[in-house]
């Protein structure tokens, strides 16, 4: 192959620089590409942080993952059955104490839990606080609407408070479990507790591909940014870019999935999740189980005492 016969003329000439002077251009905010790459970096940072937390020598980190899964899931079920806000607040305080004992930064823990609550529960509970949905005594009048008094009722606010504290406590328990346990150990614990093999397989694969695909997306967008000479990506080209990237990523994901699967099969993989860590029950695990049972019995007892 001769270089001179196939190289187009324009490639052998100097390109006129777009802006040879060092003038200051219009500053622009980041578009889809910048947001995606910084989002990917943030996710990796968060994962690193979670791994650091899981590696601490706190209370929850020292427990057998099977004990942790069973105990915290048990508390989750009890939480779902509680009917009084003060009891739920007590349980929530318990999760804060567990977080502190597990060397978790409380500000981070509280933020991580309460960040999602307005999004997931706010939409559901807000209408229920109005007297048009939940009848009762209006404690916060909001005016009139077509001749009807509109306001927040005591019953509605109590129901909303109940839902919010229950969701906050439940999410806290799940966050405690996931952030204090390395992913591989969590999957192995679930498998040891007879969780379906298919579920473990899907969860394990999803976690593995997450980072591989994250790298693929970052590479694609960084390569795109390196070739972006003109100004900011507008909304239309941003949408086209996202659609094109999704398509390309789908193809890459399929190839990658096949390669990873072959690499696993080549090393004797037959669908079972196994961990190098041998789980061992110790005195601390037994004490934790007893403490959880005592907390659950106390919470249910007080809840019943306060009546339905």
């Amino acid at each position: 192959m001769s270089a001179t016969s196939t190289t187009p003329k324009w490639l052998l000439q100097h390109e006129v620089g777009l802006c040879p002077c060092a003038c200051i251009g219009k500053r622009r905010k980041g578009g889809v590409i910048e947001k995606t790459t910084s989002g990917a970096a943030a996710l990796l940072r968060q994962t690193l942080f979670s791994e650091d937390v899981a590696g601490e020598r706190g209370l929850l980190q020292r427990l057998d993952p099977r004990v942790k899964v069973l105990s915290l899931l048990g508390l989750l079920v009890v939480t779902a059955d509680l009917r009084h806000i003060p009891v739920l607040l007590g349980m929530y305080a318990g999760t804060l104490a567990l977080a502190a004992a597990s060397k978790l930064r409380l500000s981070f823990f509280v933020k991580r839990v309460w960040l999602f609550i307005p999004v997931f529960t706010g939409v559901v509970v807000l209408p229920a606080t109005l007297n048009v949905v939940t009848h009762g005594d209006i404690v916060v009048p909001l005016g009139t609407w077509f001749g009807h008094h509109l306001g927040l009722t005591e019953q509605g606010l109590r129901s909303a408070g109940l839902v919010v504290t229950r969701v906050a406590t439940s999410i806290s328990l799940v966050v405690l479990l996931t952030i204090s346990t390395p992913w591989a150990k969590l999957l192995a614990a679930l498998r040891a507790l007879r969780a379906p093999r298919l579920l473990i397989l899907v969860l394990g694969m999803a976690y593995r591909y997450l980072f591989l695909l994250l790298n693929a997306v970052t590479d694609m967008y960084v390569a795109r940014r390196a070739r972006t000479v003109a100004g900011a990506t507008d909304a239309t080209s941003g949408r086209l870019l996202v659609a094109a990237s999704a398509g390309a990523l789908f193809g890459k994901a399929q190839t990658l999935a096949e390669e990873v699967h072959l690499a696993m099969v080549a090393r004797g993989y037959a669908g079972d999740a196994r961990s190098v860590t041998a789980f061992r029950m110790r005195l601390l695990d037994a004490a934790f189980v007893l403490a959880c049972v005592a907390a659950a019995v106390a919470a249910v007892g007080v809840d019943r005492l306060l009546g339905r």
Partner: peptide, 28 residues
């Protein structure tokens, strides 16, 4: 029969290096 793939990215998939190296022996 052990195989080292050209694309290490696809071959190194476990959460940690230790888990990765233990993957084969665990399956054995």
């Amino acid at each position: 029969v052990g195989v080292v793939f050209q694309n290490s990215e696809a071959q190194v998939f476990s959460p940690t290096v230790r888990e990765e190296i233990a993957f084969g022996p665990l399956n054995m």
